[in-house]
């Protein structure tokens, strides 16, 4: 594997620093703006959004609810009122459009923590660690749902680090910092992308609408790939890239269809060859002259 300092260097040289960090910066702005919108209330008394990611009310009209926690509540035997149900449907529709796990990379506050752990891990060159199956998160998802079903309570929310962090920042963290620190240390020393990429049942849940979601990253110009591996190094879900990027000879289209792609767009940033682009899942023809996306893209290269 390449040395850490070299990852993305080629992209910076060929595209310039800003274009080579475009999606990363947009993503961090998205995560931070959402957090700030929530914090404006408790910190400055400006109530744009009330509540937290479990359920919120925006501008006193728009209800948004986490469909995962609403599902757990329903399994626990409680039929939520229409406000929560409507909120969950709105959120589900949004992620059906934008890619299920876009929640993870564009909204989830814990992502900043785990991305930092991942960055630090590359930076100080920590290798190896515990190998956990990436399927574990689906088992955990099933267990959390079963626990709700059989206990009649939303048990997972007692420890869920994702809601713990967001709620803690807004309502008081208490000992919650220890839970967040545990996730950070786990990702740093024990397992690479261990939480988001292997264990988190919240991400596993949001990957489900991702099975159908419209917006996807596509390796549109995959024939230009020079195997520099930069995208693999930065990708939190490395396994999703290969089928699309190297699928030409197997007649597999260039769109990354895996529901676990978080649409973070970091692969687009670090690719000096401009292989990747955001597109829709429908433009997935195996024909490499993937016309309409290529046109705009070529212009960019020429200019």
């Amino acid at each position: 594997m390449k040395r850490f300092a070299d990852v993305g260097k080629a992209a910076v040289t060929s595209k310039g620093w800003l274009p080579a960090h475009k999606w990363l910066l947009l993503r961090r702005s998205s995560q931070l703006s959402i957090l700030i919108l929530f914090l404006l209330g408790p910190w400055f008394g400006i109530w744009v959004v009330k509540g937290n990611l479990a359920s919120s009310l925006t501008l006193e009209v728009l209800p948004l609810s986490d469909p995962y926690v609403v599902l757990q509540s329903m399994l626990a035997g409680h039929l939520p009122e229409s406000t929560a149900l409507l909120g969950a449907v709105v959120v589900l529709l949004f992620y059906l459009l934008m890619g299920g796990r876009a929640y993870c990379s564009w909204v989830c506050p814990l992502n900043i923590v785990t991305d930092t752990a991942s960055w630090l891990r590359r930076r100080i060159g920590i290798k190896g660690g515990s190998r956990i199956s990436r399927q574990t998160r689906y088992w955990l998802l099933a267990v959390t749902l079963l626990l709700a079903l059989f206990s009649g309570t939303i048990m997972w929310e007692l420890i869920n680090p994702v809601s713990q962090l967001h709620r803690g920042l807004l309502f008081g963290m208490g000992f919650g910092w220890a839970v967040i620190a545990a996730v950070f240390l786990f990702d740093l020393f024990i397992s690479r992308n261990g939480w988001c990429g292997h264990l988190c049942p919240v991400g596993a849940f949001y990957s489900l609408p991702g099975l159908l979601s419209i917006l996807r990253v596509s390796a549109v110009s995959r024939e230009r790939c020079d195997d520099c591996m930069d995208c693999f190094v930065v990708c939190p879900e490395q396994q999703v890239i290969r089928p699309a990027l190297k699928g030409a000879e197997n007649n597999i289209g260039p769109v990354i269809l895996s529901p676990n792609c978080t649409n973070c767009g970091r692969c687009i940033d670090v690719c000096a060859q401009n292989v990747f682009q955001f597109g829709t899942r429908f433009h997935n023809s195996t024909n490499s002259s993937n016309t309409h996306l290529m046109v705009g893209h070529n212009k960019e290269v020429i200019s």
Partner: peptide, 17 residues
């Protein structure tokens, strides 16, 4: 308490109001 733990999704909207 048990029903409440199955119905409350911990959003804090009651706290805010």
């Amino acid at each position: 308490e048990k029903d409440f733990l199955g119905a409350c999704i911990r959003c804090g909207l009651c706290v805010r109001d």
